[in-house]
C-alpha cells in the first residue's frame, strides 16, 4: 500500500496512511536469523554496551558502598534501607510528585484546548502551530535563563505586567524565583509548573495529528444526533483520540519524574529545598555528597526505574475502560 492510496480522511502529514498500512503489510525477503541480527547489530551493540551493561552495573552498585575512589563494597540492602529513613529522599520524592501532579493535568488540558482550536480549516494554522511548537525546541538551559529573567521579582516581565494590575488592590506580586535559590518559597514550584506549559507544543502537535485522523463520518453522525461543538468534543473527539492521550500521559509521567535542568539551573533546589527534585538528589548523591556516593545514587535510580515501570503498567491497566480503540 503506497502513501498515495490513503483513505479520504484529511491527513496532511500522511500519518493515517502509514498507520493503516501496518497491519496488512507483507513486504520483505526471508533471511536467516544471523543475517537479521547482523542488520540489527548497530543497535544491539549499543544496547548491550550503553544500556544493558549499565543497567546491570547500577543494579549491582545499588547493593554496594561505592564512592568512585574506593572499590565497591557489598553492603546488601543497606542503601535501600537508608532511603526509608532519609528525610531528604522523601522531600525530593514529594517535590517530584507535586510537580508531576500539577504539571501533567495542566499541560494535558492546555494541549487539548489548543489542539482543538487548531483543528479547523482556518487560515494561518501553520503560523499558530509554529508559535506554540517552537518553545519545545529551545534548549533547557536557555529557557531556564529566559524564565529566570521573566520571573525576576523586581525586573521580570511577569511582574512588570502584574504590578499595575495588583498594586491598586494592595497586593505585591511575589518574587517568583530569585537568584541563587532565593525568592518566594511558596511560589517557586508553581512557577516551574507554569513554565512547563510553555513546552506543551509537542503534545499539541501529536493531538492535532490524532484529531485530524478522526473519520469525518463520526462528526456527521454526531451532527445528525443534534450534538453541538462541546458535545462533539466530549463524545467523538476525546474517545477517538484517547489512545494518543494515554500515550502522551505515560510519556509525561516518565519525563516529569526526570525533571532536572530547570530546578538545577534556576533554583538550585531552593528556596529551602522547595524545588529539590528526585533527579537533583540523585545527581548530588553521585557527584556532590561524598557520604552517599554511587551506591546510594544507583539505588535511587533503580527505585525510579521500578516506579516508572509500575506506573506505566498501572496507567495502561486503569485506562482499559477509558481508552477506546478503533477497529483497524
Amino acid at each position: 500500500m503506497s502513501r498515495s492510496s490513503a483513505p479520504p480522511v484529511v491527513a496532511p502529514t500522511g500519518v493515517s496512511a502509514r498507520r493503516r498500512s501496518q497491519g496488512s503489510l507483507q513486504v520483505g525477503r526471508e533471511v536467516g536469523v544471523l543475517r537479521g541480527l547482523l542488520w540489527a547489530s548497530p543497535w544491539l551493540v549499543g544496547f548491550i554496551a550503553f544500556m544493558a551493561v549499565p543497567v546491570g552495573m547500577s543494579l549491582y552498585y545499588s547493593f554496594t558502598d561505592y564512592n568512585l575512589v574506593q572499590r565497591p563494597v557489598f553492603i546488601g540492602l543497606e542503601n535501600y534501607e537508608r532511603m526509608i529513613t532519609d528525610d531528604l529522599f522523601w522531600k525530593a520524592v514529594g517535590n517530584t510528585v507535586l510537580y508531576a501532579a500539577m504539571s501533567i493535568p495542566l499541560c494535558t488540558v492546555a494541549a487539548l484546548v489548543i489542539a482543538s482550536l487548531l483543528n479547523k480549516p482556518i487560515m494561518g494554522v501553520s503560523i499558530y502551530r509554529a508559535a506554540v511548537f517552537l518553545p519545545t525546541l529551545v534548549p533547557a538551559v536557555a529557557s531556564a535563563m529566559v524564565w529566570l529573567w521573566l520571573y525576576n521579582g523586581d525586573l521580570g516581565l511577569i511582574n512588570r505586567i502584574l504590578r499595575p494590575m495588583l498594586e491598586p488592590l494592595g497586593v505585591t506580586p511575589p518574587n517568583w524565583i530569585g537568584l541563587r535559590g532565593s525568592g518566594d518559597k511558596f511560589w517557586a514550584m508553581p512557577a516551574l509548573v507554569f513554565m512547563s506549559v510553555w513546552s506543551v507544543g509537542q503534545s499539541v502537535v501529536i493531538y492535532l495529528a490524532a484529531m485530524r485522523d478522526v473519520p469525518a463520518a463520526l462528526y456527521e453522525a454526531a451532527a445528525l444526533d443534534g450534538m453541538g461543538p462541546v458535545a462533539k468534543f466530549r463524545h467523538v473527539t476525546l474517545p477517538a483520540i484517547s489512545p494518543v492521550i494515554l500515550f502522551s500521559v505515560i510519556t509525561s509521567i516518565i519525563n516529569s519524574s526526570q525533571i532536572f535542568g530547570a530546578p538545577y539551573i534556576m533554583t538550585q533546589g531552593g528556596p529551602d529545598r522547595a524545588t529539590y527534585v528526585y533527579s537533583m538528589y540523585l545527581y548530588d548523591a553521585a557527584f556532590v555528597y561524598d557520604a552517599l556516593g554511587m551506591g546510594y545514587a544507583s539505588a535511587m535510580a533503580w527505585v525510579q526505574l521500578v516506579v516508572i515501570v509500575l506506573l506505566t503498567v498501572l496507567t495502561l491497566v486503569m485506562s482499559r475502560s477509558l481508552v477506546y480503540y478503533r477497529a483497524a
Partner: peptide
Amino acid sequence: SRLKWRGRGPVLALVLGTMMIPFPVIMLP
C-alpha cells in the same frame, strides 16, 4: 521492517521497551 527473520519481533519489542528506561539509571555506569 523489510527483512523477515525469526526473532525480529522480540528485537523490535526490546527496542521499544528501552524507551522506558530513565537516563538516570544508566548515566552513572
